[in-house]
C-alpha cells in the first residue's frame, strides 16, 4: 500500500487525479476498521491530515462552510448556535475518542445510510463541495450524495473539500435509536429542521433505506397545517394530531429492511415515534424562545 501525504489541497487533488484508486483517510475511524477486518486493502491511501484547507470553519453570509477534516468534537463546540441539530447529531457519534478523530468529510465519504450526521444535513439542505484538479469545484446536495450503500456521487479523481451548512433558521432536532446508550450504529435516525423564514420543514431519515431519505409529504403536511392554523405567526401550541400524523408520514416515507440491527417493522415504528417526538421538541423549543419577544 502506498501512503501519500499531501500538504495542500492542490497537491492532494493532484495525487487523487494521478491515483484514482487511492482511498482518502482523515480520522480513520471507518477506514481503519475496514482494514482491520480485512474488508478493505486499499492500494494507496491519501492522508489528508496535513491539508490545512480542510480544517477551516468559515462563516459566509447565511452559511457556515465546514471543512471536510473538521472533527465532530469541534462541530459540537463551535456550531452550537448556527447548527444546533448538527451538534446533536455529532454528539451521538461513537465515543469521545471517535468524536475527537472522526470528521464530517469521513461521514460523507463512507456513504453509509447509517452515517449519523447525514439525516440532519439532508433536513437542512446542506451541500457537499467537492473538487478535482481538472474540473475544479462543484456542489452536490447531501441528499444526492449517497447513490447506494457505501457508494457516493464522488468521481474517482474528486475529494470532499467542505460542507455548506445553512445557518439555522428555526429549531432543529436529531435523534437516533440504538440498542445501547453509546457506541452504537443506529437502528433508525431522524433529523428535523424548521425554516421559519421559508415557513417550511425539512426532514432526513437514516438507517431506513439504501440512502438517506426525506419525507416530503410529512414536511408538506406540517407546513400546510401550520399555515391553515396560523402557527407560523402565532407560535401557538401544536394542534392535536399533527405530531402523530407527521410521525406516520415519516414512517411511510422510510424504506427499511430487516437486518442484523433491527426489523423493518420496528424501524418504521421507531421513525414514527421519533419524528412525532422531534416535532414536539422543536416546536416547544421555538415557543419557549419566542415567548418573551412575542408577548
Amino acid at each position: 500500500m502506498d501512503f501519500l501525504q499531501p500538504t495542500s489541497l492542490s497537491e492532494a487533488l493532484a495525487m487523487k487525479a494521478e491515483r484514482p484508486d487511492a482511498t482518502p483517510i482523515q480520522g480513520g475511524t471507518d477506514l481503519m476498521v475496514d482494514i482491520n477486518f480485512d474488508r478493505a486493502r486499499p492500494s494507496a491511501t491519501i492522508d489528508l491530515n496535513r491539508v490545512p484547507e480542510l480544517m477551516d470553519i468559515e462563516h459566509v453570509g447565511s452559511d457556515v462552510w465546514v471543512g471536510a477534516g473538521v472533527p465532530y468534537l469541534r462541530i459540537m463546540r463551535e456550531l452550537q448556535s448556527d447548527a444546533p441539530g448538527l451538534c446533536m447529531a455529532a454528539r451521538t457519534v461513537g465515543s469521545p475518542q471517535i468524536r475527537a478523530r472522526g470528521t464530517l468529510g469521513g461521514n460523507l465519504g463512507t456513504a453509509s445510510p447509517a452515517g449519523d450526521t447525514l439525516p440532519l444535513l439532508v433536513a437542512i439542505g446542506a451541500t457537499a463541495e467537492v473538487a478535482s484538479s481538472e474540473r475544479g469545484r462543484r456542489e452536490i446536495p447531501v441528499r444526492n450524495f449517497i447513490i447506494r450503500p457505501r457508494h457516493s456521487a464522488l468521481e474517482s479523481d474528486e475529494l470532499i473539500v467542505r460542507v455548506r451548512v445553512p445557518k439555522a433558521r428555526g429549531p432543529q432536532q436529531f435523534g437516533k435509536v440504538g440498542q445501547r446508550n453509546a457506541m452504537v450504529i443506529s437502528i433508525a435516525s431522524f433529523g428535523l429542521a424548521f425554516d421559519l423564514d421559508q415557513r417550511a420543514v425539512g426532514t432526513g431519515i437514516g438507517s431506513a433505506g439504501p440512502v438517506i431519505l426525506d419525507a416530503p409529504e410529512a414536511n408538506a403536511h406540517v407546513a400546510e397545517v401550520f399555515s391553515t392554523e396560523g402557527l407560523w405567526d402565532s407560535a401557538a401550541p401544536l394542534p392535536d394530531g399533527v405530531a402523530k400524523r407527521f410521525g406516520e408520514l415519516v414512517g411511510q416515507a422510510a424504506s427499511p429492511i430487516d437486518d442484523v440491527r433491527g426489523t423493518a417493522r420496528y424501524r418504521r415504528h421507531a421513525l414514527s415515534v421519533l419524528a412525532a417526538r422531534s416535532l414536539k421538541w422543536a416546536w416547544n423549543e421555538h415557543r419557549e424562545t419566542t415567548k418573551g419577544t412575542r408577548a
Binding site: G175, V177, N181, L274
Partner: peptide, 13 residues
C-alpha cells in the same frame, strides 16, 4: 434517560 445522548426521549413513554 433510556437512549442517553442519542436523544430519543425527553421522558415520553
Amino acid at each position: 434517560l433510556p437512549g442517553g445522548a442519542a436523544n430519543s426521549t425527553h421522558g415520553e413513554d
